[in-house]
Design a protein around this nucleic acid. Structure first.
Lengths: 363, 363
DNA sequence: ATGAAAGCGCTAACAT
DNA sequence: ATGTTAGCGCTTTCAT
């Protein structure tokens, strides 16, 4: 044996790798062990601050690691330890500002928590979603935060088998086999409705789009709660549900042109808003004098419009935080005290629902 | 040896892991091999369609794999093969629509190419960026697409040492030690300038913001090229550079209130636009009659405004495609025929620069 | 407290 | 064409 991997004494060590080429190869804990004259076990313990190691040895190890420019090979580590320090977040897309915020918040949590985060989008495509999740299983991620954009039920047994805990975010129904975190959509609808009725609007049209019927219904119920409370129910019959994005614009135009034109519009999602706003503009109607406007889901364009649009905002940051905490509990094998969390939406009043003062400058 | 890894018959098959608990454990290629009565080598060959395997055996293997619900352990595979089938994309943030598009495009390429993509953002924070990249090295990713938002030069030796090829996107200077793909910012500035001057505007103010001085200068040079060509140079002295987003609004107001008010504004980035637009609104000026507006970098809000805003758009999709192709070449050990690619920006004319016809409805 | 050695699941080199 | 086996870099168990 020509050039022992360890020093000459021991002899179960590769021949073909001496210290010389440790400068060329990616350094391993063996290189560190050799340089610091300790065993690989000790190196591992020091680097992961696991067991108590004599301070002097620990110093030798960290010095050697720095000197060699060592970077832990997480693939090797997780092969052995069965954890990857990686969690994944799957959302429908990131062009939607709400998901972009959610994803950003999750990433910040990951950085703070020293865990890697893998983001994937499904593009609302079931097949792609399936492949993405298979990829995640192959990478043996520690956990998954998922905004369902497809029928994920068939995936549950597989995820379970591979020990991947899942927390569902945002698009979740009442009863769910997995833990969930979402906004209270009924409260959100009520919040928006109350504001409109309190602002003096009576005949209010409610527009949604049809990606998630169940959520939309919740928002609508909340809106109707508010209408009932304001005794405005009979005055606001003009609401429409589950329109496709493209249809929303046409429908809005049609409804705004009819005899008893709605005094205000509740756009129940940002996609709905993108149909409603051009419709209002195309008719040359002024907001908020001719028609009031309230949108659910904040996004940047709404603050750039003149007047800026009043919104009911989802607490994306809080959703991320609570979801993250729940997922961590599951990863640590703890039980969840409350597997279904609903968070409150908040109202941000801007110019578009200021009925009394009429249009004001953008200031 | 009490409990051999392998079982009695062939003597190298697990004892403590019989077929029974293969239903409980995560299945491995050993389980498949046993069930299909072939060797692990053959299983590996079939699953990775590497060598020619007799069709009957191949079928037995794939059947067994399906039956067991097998998912390849990529960590183990890459430990051995030194490739992870994963590339990473690092961008400053994803709230910026341009980066969101870039990231989405990269992910689509990843799906098509059957590679995992890890996204990370730096939040323009150097320290966070460093940690993110260390995390990527620890995961031994195959390659990196990076939008620099920090001084990445010190990271290059480390990335090189760990054999991670890098392609820089978007924010890149003239001479760069790494391959780059970006829009031709000078051409983009020229394109926007030409359009404004051709539309009849003479006194045009140019606003940028200061995150990437070099890029901004390029856009400004292009704009000045156009001014020179239109002999409008002496008529448009009012341009400002490198303002912070917050300042841009104030500065815009100040300049629009001065005597020889600019007839049009070229907002050289989407961040600049977010200062310029509220400024124009707050003065009650009408676009495009009182002042024309052209923005570099398309984003959604610009189409929702009335009139919609004319933009010079970056080819985010193309940038992603070219960057991806270059990275793949590097991963495959090929040489790049052209390491610095510049792509053309495109002009999208909307209502905000239609000087002659004045304001029109949003249709 | 430290060292030795087994082995995680896979690929690749080699043998047949 | 198929089987056998070493070993990737790490963690972990067991000795000491």
């Amino acid at each position: 044996m020509l050039a022992g991997y360890y020093h000459e004494a021991s002899d179960h060590v590769p021949v073909n790798r001496s210290m010389e080429d440790a400068r060329l190869r990616e350094p391993t804990i063996h290189d560190i062990a050799q340089l610091a004259r300790v065993s690989v076990g000790t190196v591992s313990n020091v680097l992961n601050s696991r067991q108590s190691v004599r301070e002097e040895l620990a110093l030798r190890v960290t010095n050697a690691a720095t000197k060699l420019g060592y970077r832990r090979n997480l693939n090797a580590a997780s092969l052995r330890s069965n954890q990857t320090d990686t969690i994944a977040a799957v959302v429908p897309n990131i062009e939607n500002a709400f998901f972009a915020e959610l994803v950003s918040a999750i990433e910040r949590l990951g950085v703070a928590d020293r865990r890697g985060v893998m983001f994937l989008t499904t593009g609302e495509d079931e097949d792609r979603a399936r492949r993405q999740i298979h990829g995640l299983i192959s990478r043996r991620i520690d956990g998954l935060l998922l905004v369902p954009s497809f029928d994920f039920l068939p995936m549950i047994p597989e995820l379970q088998r591979y020990g991947v805990p899942v927390v569902l975010l945002d698009r979740v129904e009442a009863r769910n086999p997995l833990p969930t975190v979402a906004v209270d959509n009924r409260q959100a609808g009520r919040l928006g409705g109350n504001h409109l009725f309190e602002a003096g609007y009576r005949r209010v049209a409610f527009f949604g789009h049809g990606h998630e019927r169940w959520i939309l219904n919740q928002r609508r119920e909340g809106f109707l709660d508010a209408a009932r409370a304001a005794s405005a129910l009979e005055l606001c019959p003009a609401y429409e549900l589950s329109l496709e994005p493209a249809e929303i614009r046409e429908t809005t135009v049609r409804i705004l042109e009819q005899g008893a034109r709605p005094e205000a519009i509740f756009a129940a999602s940002n996609i709905a808003a993108k149909g409603v706003i051009p419709a209002i503009q195309s008719l040359g109607l002024k907001v908020p004098e001719d028609v009031g406007l309230l949108v659910m889901d904040d996004f940047e364009a709404l603050t750039l419009l003149n007047p800026a649009i009043t919104v009911v905002a989802q607490p994306s940051q809080r959703i991320a935080e609570v979801g993250w905490r729940m997922l961590r509990s599951l990863i640590d094998g703890e039980d969840l005290e409350e597997p279904h969390v609903r968070l409150l939406a908040t109202l941000i009043v801007r110019g578009s629902t200021n009925r009394r003062s009429g249009r004001r400058s953008g200031r």
